[in-house]
């Protein structure tokens, strides 16, 4: 009896504040309000998502998120690899050093780049010192990309590092004993074994990158549209909740599918991680 009662408030809470809101967004995305306030079912909101203007926004969001993910992977894999090879005593400390910046508020980390890249920022001061002309770094697509890489790089490094650090040394030694040179040992043994880490790193970078509106808003300004900005605008300034809901639903589906595929690909034991998809 007590066992059943204990989770009662929680069950009510998650139904009311997790399940119902998502169902409502789903409902909103499927209806449109007539001039007299009547609701009619329609697929118009979803059709509008495929308007060329909005397809452009999806394309841009996915492209920049993929670019950020790729750069994080290229920078992050060697980092994780070197970290995992460090002496144990230094290793723990070095990994800690990698985690600490993540504890800083996300907005402040993004704001930091505003002060560095700005017109009177440090970067321009340095350019002036060596006699180069001032440039506008801020308010460009490059700045947004940099902001994403900076904010999400640890999300790539840490899962890869975890897999590499736990890797069975015997397998590597066996490969070496059997005559594999360093390149072969890496491509045939280490890399395939580290794939689960790579996959979870990729999804942990891609997901926040594709849905952000803060980085694009601060480092590019209002004119630059990513999917996140579009949703924010529809809900907070334009007030077209039906269209906004349709975009949110599609974004959610994209993310959930990505997660499901990634989970399956990395062969994560759902019981162990506590997070699984049905």
């Amino acid at each position: 009896m007590l066992k059943k009662l204990a989770s009662g408030p929680y069950l009510i809470w998650i139904v009311l504040f997790i399940v119902v809101p998502i169902l409502m967004v789903g409902f909103f995305s499927l209806v449109q309000e007539g001039p007299d306030g009547t609701l009619t079912f329609t697929t118009a909101n979803f059709q509008r998502v495929f308007d060329p203007i909005y397809v452009g926004v999806w394309w841009r969001s996915i492209k920049i998120a993929l670019e950020a993910t790729l750069i994080c992977l290229i920078l992050g894999y060697p980092t994780a690899f070197i970290l995992s090879k460090m002496k144990k005593r230094i290793q723990t400390f070095a990994v800690m050093l990698f985690i600490v910046p993540m504890w800083m508020n996300f907005l402040l980390r993004t704001y930091a780049w505003m002060t560095i890249l700005g017109k009177n920022g440090i970067l321009n001061q340095l350019l002036a010192l060596v006699g180069l002309p001032q440039m506008t770094f801020l308010y460009s697509e490059g700045a947004v990309l940099l902001g994403m890489v900076y904010n999400f790089l640890p999300f790539m490094v840490l899962p890869i590092y975890t897999v590499l650090a736990k890797m069975d040394r015997n397998l590597i030694e066996a490969a070496e004993d059997l005559g594999g040179n360093r390149r072969i040992v890496f491509t045939k043994v280490i890399l395939p074994l580290s794939l689960p880490g790579v996959i979870s790193g990729v999804s942990m970078v891609f997901m926040p990158a594709v849905s952000t509106f803060v980085i694009s808003n601060l480092l590019y300004g209002g004119q630059y549209m990513l999917i996140g900005n579009l949703i924010e605008q529809q809900f907070l300034t334009v007030g077209d909740w039906h269209f906004g809901s349709a975009i949110a639903i599609i974004l959610m589906i994209i993310i959930l599918i990505t997660m499901a595929v990634m989970n399956r690909a990395s062969g994560n034991d759902p019981e162990e991680s506590g997070v699984n998809l049905w």
Partner: peptide, 16 residues
């Protein structure tokens, strides 16, 4: 809520 993008959680709660 852990998997969903924050923005989706945000707008869905706002809708509710």
């Amino acid at each position: 809520p852990m998997l969903n993008p924050d923005i989706v959680t945000g707008v869905s709660l706002m809708t509710l």
